[in-house]
């Protein structure tokens, strides 16, 4: 049965590799979500056929990076193979960035770094974030960046050129501003180490087909943003997209596997 056929029957995509490149963990201050634990997420992942989810803790992209990263590390150790960690870094504590990256990436299940300039109120290309990019370049690891709007996308374009051995995932592909997304696509085509993820609460009709047509399936990754959103709606819009089965395989898992080195 095809991926589309399975989605139309509400069945898990259990015969292809599915890696969620963009998920989180734990509660969030700004709104109520009915479910938020790793165990809740595993139930959803099993129902959808998601083999593994790459997580950063909400606490870490919010107020307390160490508390959140500890939570993330406990989770990836508890569920090896199902969760892969991102060390979340806060540039408001610049003196601790290198040590925190080192502390987290010593754990084999932690494979990348997460930056969230929107919450931490620093521009994406601030000098303190460059500490992160230097480390990622040195370690050849992926950096998941929360991109929202044109300014952040233009900054990522500059950063990608400066650190060619790191891979940068533009989380949300620039966000709901379609002009920022167009620029993100343009930059992904220019830089071998720049990728787009499909985590969008405003899931536009025809968006997957357009991104694949413009940037190619090797540059687009599946993500869910769990436990903010349910994983189903982003899974469904890829599975039902009018693109080839091979392109779906790239997006669902093969690209993330390559970037994570697993």
């Amino acid at each position: 049965m095809t991926d589309a056929g399975k989605v139309k029957r509400g069945l898990p995509l259990d015969d292809i590799l599915v890696i969620d490149c963009h998920a989180h963990l734990g509660p969030w201050a700004a709104f109520h979500g009915p479910k938020e634990t790793a165990e809740d997420m595993l139930v959803n992942m099993d129902a959808l056929g998601i083999d593994a989810a790459c997580i950063s803790a909400h606490a870490a992209i919010g107020p307390d990076y160490a508390y959140g990263n500890n939570f993330m590390m406990e989770t990836v150790k508890k569920y090896p193979g199902r969760f892969i960690g991102y060390a979340a870094i806060n540039p408001n504590y610049p003196g601790e960035i290198r040590a925190e990256i080192d502390r987290c990436l010593k754990i084999p299940q932690v494979k990348g770094i997460k930056v969230h300039p929107g919450f931490h109120k620093y521009p994406m290309d601030h000098k303190y974030y460059h500490i992160v990019y230097e480390e990622a370049d040195k370690r050849r690891c992926p950096v998941l960046m929360h991109t929202w709007g044109m300014d952040s996308i233009l900054a990522v374009g500059r950063i990608a050129g400066m650190y060619p051995r790191a891979n940068f995932i533009m989380g949300h592909a620039g966000g709901s501003d379609i002009k920022a997304m167009e620029k993100a696509v343009e930059l992904a085509c220019m830089h071998d180490n720049l990728y787009l993820d499909l985590v969008l609460s405003m899931a536009y009709e025809g968006n997957v087909e357009w991104l694949v047509r413009e940037a190619g399936s090797k540059k687009v990754l599946f993500g869910t943003d769990m436990p903010f959103y349910d994983g189903s709606f982003n899974l469904g819009r890829i599975a039902l997209a009018e693109i080839s089965d091979d392109e779906k395989k790239d997006i669902f898992g093969l690209n993330a596997k390559r970037l994570l080195g697993i």
């Binding site: 989605v7 129902a47 959808l48 899931a203 536009y204 009709e205 709606f233």
Partner: peptide, 19 residues
């Protein structure tokens, strides 16, 4: 669905997979 602005595929998937 919110079509044609929003994704019809996303909309049906939310219901198909709801627990």
């Amino acid at each position: 669905t919110g079509m044609p602005v929003l994704s019809g595929a996303a909309a049906i998937s939310l219901i198909k997979y709801a627990r």
